[in-house]
Design a protein around this nucleic acid. Structure first.
Lengths: 232, 232
DNA sequence: AGGCGAGGTGTACGCCGTACACCTGCCTTC
DNA sequence: GAAGGCAGGTGTACGGCGTACACCTCGCCT
């Protein structure tokens, strides 16, 4: 008989299996129960083996965050932008409720993952398809964003810090893949003429915009004599 | 000369000095740079000395969170509830910007600290003074809350798990100290007749309430042809 | 047959929070 | 003034963490 030390050896680890096991372990034991050591044990492997598939723990967290963000996707009808946005936001909330640890992990990511970019692009597309202007959409994204996850500060990914032609190519590729994000970014940059900051958003403005939308809405409900009884 | 080993001995540690040093260290080195060991070194003391003033690191984090929350307080005029709420929310945001690590720390606290309760009570009081109903105020707090900090889930503190008369006394004391919170809690509990949950809020309802206020507000701005140019 | 590279292993280091026993010097009480 | 208690600082040690680094062991390609 050829040596067959254990069944696990037959299907060797790969990045995907590692990440899925990490999600399962976090679901089962909470995020504090997810350590490189415990994950390795779950996979019947020595801790250092994981590092052949994941650079370090932070990259592991990036990976599991992206898996959860991948569950944010929601089918939308396209006839009513408001209902479609609502469905997409609630889908994201659903995923975060299924993985209670995920919100905190996502908030600590410093870079937007591909799945996050895809979700944002789709959400922006819904607003734009509804006829909202690029800059109103931009502010709407900020207003909604901090509610669902933590991108209060940096919605737009930081441009790669390589130089010259390579950087331009990377930007062009991103614009091709996420056209709506690119459009919003352009609108934000254009609007930002008055500010010195290089292409970023004015956080204070975005915060106050969302705050005022909420306060005005609450004031309107108050003026209308709103009560939870009347609204069902 | 009487023995005077070092100057630090003259003013012995106390809880307040420990907490203030922790805030300063977190401000300077980030929250990851704040360990019991580094904090002890900063105070010219051995790590275990801190445990005479703080039960464990979690209680240290509770303490520094409460210090930051203490900076949330804002003077309000009382003539315009909307402006007053705005000022109080922006004051909280200001404190969180001064201590960039604080939002994450506050979000991970499992219990509301006294400072947090005081802030919430004042904010609720502002709504109530403006004439808003208790239950609209309750929903407004949830809608605004997740924006500033992380109490998406549990605005109301979990009742102490001691039993009988002692528990009632604790509740009564809390009601006396934070009358507006007590009022809101009563309104929420009353509203919750249909739900089984013991006195908690319906998270899903609160989430959708805030979401709809935002979406309606955005739709209204869209219908009005809003643009950042027109709004200044 | 030879070797190379992907993937798993073993050991070790420096950090972390903190349990536990200890020491020290002031304050109270007689 | 002597005795004793106690608040507060110390020293050592343990188990956990992430992960650097050297190693081994296959299966595959030439």
């Amino acid at each position: 008989m050829t040596p067959q030390p254990d069944a696990a050896r037959r299907t060797p680890l790969n990045r995907d299996r590692v990440l899925r096991a990490a999600v399962a372990l976090a679901d089962a034991s909470g995020i504090d129960g997810l350590s490189m050591r415990s994950l390795a044990q779950e996979l019947g492997v020595v801790p250092m083996a994981l590092y052949k598939h994941v650079a370090n723990k932070d990259e592991l967290l990036d990976g599991i965050a992206d898996i959860v963000v991948g569950e944010f996707a929601a089918p939308v009808g396209g006839t009513d932008w408001q209902a479609d946005v609502r469905a997409q936001i609630l889908a994201a909330r659903g995923a975060l409720l299924r993985h209670p640890w995920a919100a905190r992990v996502i908030e600590t990511r410093t870079q937007l993952t591909p799945g996050a970019l895809a979700y944002l692009d789709a959400l922006i597309g819904t607003f734009r398809a509804g006829g909202l202007s690029a800059d109103l959409t931009h502010h709407a994204m900020h207003a909604l964003g901090s509610r669902v996850w933590g991108f209060t500060q940096e919605l737009l990914p930081a441009p790669p810090e390589v130089e010259g032609a390579q950087r331009e190519a990377a930007l062009r590729e991103m614009a091709a893949r996420y056209p709506h994000i690119a459009e919003i970014a352009a609108a934000a940059a254009h609007e930002d003429d008055t500010v010195v900051g290089g292409g970023g958003c004015d956080d204070q403005f975005e915060f106050e915009f969302a705050l005022d939308v909420l306060l005005d809405g609450i004031a309107r409900l108050h003026a209308a004599g709103w009560s939870s009884k009347t609204a069902g």
